[in-house]
């Protein structure tokens, strides 16, 4: 019981460091096209979030944690709606007025 979890933390740490080095490296090398860099940052970031969820927070598709996962997904959807909606609205308003 104990060793698998310690392994998970160790793996999570190494993966996180790697997934941090990559985006920093992409930006600091400053020789890649911006679109690629931004995509790389987003991808690495998303992956690292998943690594954290899986290795540190032990979020699996357990029946026990069913409601936790439901709320996590709901929160993600709400965030996409609020953030996406706000950016769309403000961008549109700014384009027409500022």
């Amino acid at each position: 019981m104990e060793t698998p979890r310690i392994r998970a933390y160790a793996f999570g740490f190494i993966a996180s460091v790697l997934l941090t080095v990559i985006p920093f490296g992409l930006v600091m090398a400053s020789r890649f096209p911006r679109i690629g860099v931004v995509a790389g940052i987003a991808a690495a970031g998303t992956l690292q979030v998943l690594v954290h969820l899986r290795c540190f927070l032990a979020v699996r598709t357990l029946s026990d944690a069913r409601w936790n996962i439901l709320f996590l997904i709901l929160t993600a959807l709400i965030i996409i709606l609020f953030v996406g909606g706000s950016i769309w609205i403000m961008h549109d308003l700014n384009y027409r007025m500022m």
Binding site: R5, I6, Y9, A10, G12, F13, S16, V17, T20, F56
Partner: peptide, 22 residues
């Protein structure tokens, strides 16, 4: 980058406490 490493390490090290608690 240094700040990030500190925080990630802190998170990983907390895992020792979590395992110890269990």
């Amino acid at each position: 980058f240094a700040e990030t490493l500190l925080l990630v390490l802190s998170s990983a090290v907390y895992g020792i406490a979590s395992s110890g608690s269990r």
